[in-house]
Design a protein around this nucleic acid. Structure first.
Lengths: 231, 231
DNA sequence: TGCGCTCTTTGAGCAAAAGCAAACTCGGGT
DNA sequence: ACCCGAGTTTGCTTTTGCTCAAAGAGCGCA
C-alpha cells in the first residue's frame, strides 16, 4: 500500500491541531478504501467496528423504513469524518452509507477511537464539535420538515447541496455529485413527481438548469427567497 | 442553600461510574434552580454558559421559525442532562428550554465541563453516549416526518411521551406532564385541529382518554399498530 | 447504430390535512 | 357564584401534493 501524505490531513478539523509526526502515526494505522458509485460502505444496524474519513468523493447517509421508503439523512463531503458511531458509544451504525460517486476514504478500527482521543490533545474536542454541528443540522431538518411546504423544503435541500458541494461554473453553481429526482425526493420527504414538476417550473424561470442526474443552480438568490431560510 | 444528597446522582448516566466522594465534589460546584411551569430556562441563540441536569419535572426543548411556528424538538425527563452545548463545543444554545411543569435542575458553569471530562473517568464517555442516543432519536424523527402520515406521527408522538414519562394508573398509562393539543401539533408538524380530531376519534374507540392538558393512553398496543413503528 | 434501461416529464383525479370560522367547556380567580 | 380566558371541538371550504398512468429522452453498451 502506498503511504499517504500527511498534508492530506492537516487543516481538517480533528487533525488541525496535531503535529505532523502525530498525523503520521495516525495515518500509519489507517486503511485506505475505494468505493464505486453506488457501493455500500456500511449498513444500518451492523456492528460499528470502524470509523471513517472521506478523502475524496461524496457519501450519502440514508435510513430505510420497514415500509420500504428510503430517506437521505445527510451527505458527507471530502474531509469529513463519518461512521463515528464509536465516538458516541454506539455499537451499531444508526444509518447506511453509500458512495454517491467513486470515493476514497480512510478507515480505522473502532478501538483506535479512544486511543486517539486520549493521546492527542484536541482530537476528541474537535470531533465533538463536528457532532454538535451535525446535530444542529438535524434540528434544522426536523423544523423544516415540520413547518415548511414542499417547495420551500426543496429549495432548502438544493441550497444545502450547493453549499456543501457547489462548484462554480460559468452557468452558475453546480452540484458536484449525481442526484436524481428520486434522491431529492428522499431528502425532502416528497415524491419524485413533485420534485420533477417543481424543477421544471424553476427551469422555465431560469432559476436552475438540470439534466439527467445533474443540477446547476443559476440563481441561488432566488432559491434563498423560495426557501424562506430558517437561519 | 441546603446540601444535596449524593444519592440523587448515583445511578444516572454520567455519574454512574463515579465514587461518592467525586459526586460530592461535583455537587458542591452545582447551583440548584427551580422553575415555574412555563418558565424559560435558556433561549436559542444565547450564550451557552451553563449546562444542566434535571432533577425533577419535565422540560420542553423547542425551536422557533422566523414565520412564528414553534416546534418541540424533544422532552427532557428527570435524571437527564440538557443544555449540553458546552460539551459539543457550541457557544450558543441551539434551542430553547422551557419548564413543562414546575421543575428543579442543577446547573454548572460551562467551564466545568472540561474539568469534569478530564478529571472523572467515564464522565465524558457516558455523556457522549447520551448524545448518541439523542442523535438517533433525531434521525428517527426526521424519517418519521418525511415518510409517515399525520395519524402515524401522532401515534408515535404519544408513544414517545408515554415511554418517557408514562405513569401507570388504573385507567391505563398517563402522560405525566401537561400537554395541549397545540403542544402535540408542535411535536408532529401538524395543526391543533387535526390533533383534536384524531384524539376525539381515538377517544371514541377507547384507545385514549383525554381531558384538558392531560392524556391517558388506555390501549398502548393500538397506538403501536397505528404508528407503524420504525424500530 | 440501435437497443434497452434508467431517469424524467406531464396529465388527471383524488384524498388528506390545512385554513377559516364559530361555538363550547372547563377551571381558576374575583 | 359568576366571569373570563385558555384550551378544545366541530363543520365547511380550499388547497396541496400524492397516486396512478403513460409517454418521452438521454446514455451506455453491444
Amino acid at each position: 500500500m502506498s503511504r499517504i501524505d500527511e498534508s492530506l490531513l492537516t487543516g481538517i478539523p480533528p487533525f488541525r491541531k496535531l503535529e505532523r509526526s502525530q498525523i503520521r502515526e495516525i495515518l500509519d494505522l489507517a486503511t485506505v478504501r475505494r468505493y464505486e458509485e453506488g457501493e455500500t460502505i456500511f449498513e444500518e444496524g451492523l456492528a460499528a467496528d470502524r470509523f471513517f474519513l472521506l478523502l475524496d468523493g461524496y457519501i450519502r447517509v440514508t435510513r430505510n423504513t420497514p415500509a420500504g421508503d428510503q430517506i437521505i439523512v445527510l451527505h458527507i463531503a471530502s474531509g469529513q469524518l463519518f461512521g463515528i458511531a464509536p465516538a458516541l458509544g454506539r455499537d451499531t451504525y444508526p444509518a447506511t452509507a453509500t458512495a454517491a460517486v467513486e470515493s476514497i476514504s480512510l478507515c480505522w478500527p473502532r478501538r483506535h477511537w479512544h486511543e486517539f482521543a486520549e493521546k492527542y490533545e484536541g482530537f476528541a474536542t474537535e470531533t465533538y464539535k463536528v457532532v454538535g454541528e451535525r446535530m444542529q443540522g438535524l434540528h434544522d431538518q426536523v423544523v423544516e420538515l415540520a413547518t415548511k411546504a414542499v417547495e420551500q423544503r426543496l429549495a432548502s435541500a438544493l441550497l444545502r447541496m450547493v453549499n456543501q458541494s457547489g462548484r462554480k461554473t460559468d452557468q452558475g453553481i453546480e452540484i458536484a455529485f449525481p442526484v436524481t429526482r428520486q434522491n431529492i425526493s428522499e431528502m425532502t420527504g416528497t415524491t419524485l413527481h413533485t420534485v420533477s414538476r417543481l424543477l421544471s417550473a424553476w427551469q422555465k424561470q431560469g432559476i436552475v438548469a438540470s439534466t439527467r442526474r445533474h443540477i446547476v443552480v443559476t440563481q441561488p438568490h432566488q432559491l434563498v427567497l423560495l426557501s424562506d431560510a430558517i437561519a
